[in-house]
Design a protein around this nucleic acid. Structure first.
Lengths: 231, 231
DNA sequence: CGCTCTCTTGAGCCCGCTCAACGACAGTGG
DNA sequence: CCACTGTCGTTGAGCGGGCTCAAGAGAGCG
């Protein structure tokens, strides 16, 4: 049981999907032991998991699919703080309300955990507490890296970093099936959709990547070249 | 020391207490014996607390002064992820090494905690673990807000947000004594030093702020106007 | 087939950057 | 006391990367 929990911790760090499968087994296996069971919930593409200002009664762990956590400014400008992929934990707040909105980028299955039992979870189940702490640290590190990207990288560097990151988190191969559309990428990288599109086209011309007809499947044909743009 | 710790946690929380924050009462209500003692260390202006790539044996809590946590790109571009003010906890990593550099913006006094005792701290002292978890969540929330700023706000909005934030965290009055120089502000907000300077000058002309001769002391003479620029 | 949604491409503009000069101090040494 | 020097902040002139506005091309679907 302890070993299973440990595997779950690993799944939330930069690890291969292997750990992920173990965790699915864990959830469905419901041993009623050390791992607190969340409630399984499914959201369709575009659906809202929670909205800014709502009571933050739950936090979430992605089982499958992709969610985006974002914030809107008063005039409609949007920043996507992160894409939440399988294994990621998100939606844990210090205050009573969610300060960001979470939506399904594509159909997504999550485990929902009641925050009101947060303290008792931590105290009764140190292993789960460790997992949560690791997850928070990981989220913070991702956010820190992303601030460097947003504050100091050029459009080309932003896209290169994004593609390499998606490859690492999604497939670890040179072929990446992006779950999100260009608008989401733009709002994640602090660009406009036109700049994202133009930059990708330029990368094709430069032989760095290849684009499938739909535009969602991207082949990283020159990983070294992309890494050189990483900063 | 316990008094400092408790006040610091409160000062760094910008939300009304909710379920999670019940633990703060635990911390403040606990006797001094439960709070693990860190090692007090002092750094002079410009000194390095730790560098990117160094072993992350310690994490820190600011007692007085200001530190900056930053990252350099290969060509010298710099992003300051955060300014650490009294009460803030930083330098906790998921890996073995620090992924960012921390330096003293002005003379700074910190408490250093050994990370190797991290797990035992958490288990032997749940209150301290709660405080750490709250601190991580707070850091993450700050990082998220900052991503909105970096990705989607104009120079004027960035400066306005920064000034209001510094006022809230430092003095809570309309007169702010900035501990950092223009270069640091620029690298924090994803701007150049010239743009920071020009924007501040324009704000003076617009009657939003007043600048002392040295430039470090800023009076927020029109807080409402600044808040309108906040996004 | 028409409709919608998504993505791409073009043309021109503007905000913030680059390059450069200058001013205000604080130390420091003669 | 002033001259010299380094650091920090301000201001100006001009440029360019990414944005805005606009049109068009595919793909999916009824």
């Amino acid at each position: 049981m302890t070993a299973i929990t440990t595997a779950a911790v690993r799944a939330s760090t930069h690890r291969p999907p292997a750990g992920l499968l173990a965790q699915h087994a864990l959830v469905s296996g419901s041993n009623g032991g050390l791992q607190p069971a969340g409630t399984r919930r499914t959201f369709a593409r575009g659906e809202e998991l929670f909205a800014e200002g709502e009571a933050a009664d739950f936090f979430y762990k992605v089982v499958s699919g992709t969610a985006r956590v974002c914030k809107l400014l008063s005039d409609g400008r949007r920043q996507i703080e992160a894409f939440q992929l399988p294994g990621d934990i998100f939606g844990l707040e210090s205050g009573a309300e969610h300060r960001f909105t979470a939506e399904a980028v594509e159909d997504v299955v999550v485990l929902a955990f009641r925050r009101s039992r947060f303290a008792s979870l931590l105290h009764d189940n140190p292993a789960f507490g460790d997992q949560l702490m690791s997850s928070m640290i990981l989220s913070l590190e991702r956010a820190q890296e992303h601030m460097v990207l947003l504050g100091r990288k050029t459009a080309q560097e932003k896209i290169a970093t994004f593609l390499l990151d998606m490859s690492r988190r999604l497939t670890k191969t040179d072929q990446v099936e992006l779950p999100m559309q260009r608008t989401d990428i733009a709002d994640h990288l602090g660009l406009t959709i036109e700049t994202v599109s133009r930059t990708l086209s330029q990368m094709v011309r430069d032989g760095l990547i290849r684009l499938a007809a739909t535009g969602r499947t991207i082949v990283l044909s020159n990983r070294t070249g992309l890494q050189a743009l990483n900063g």
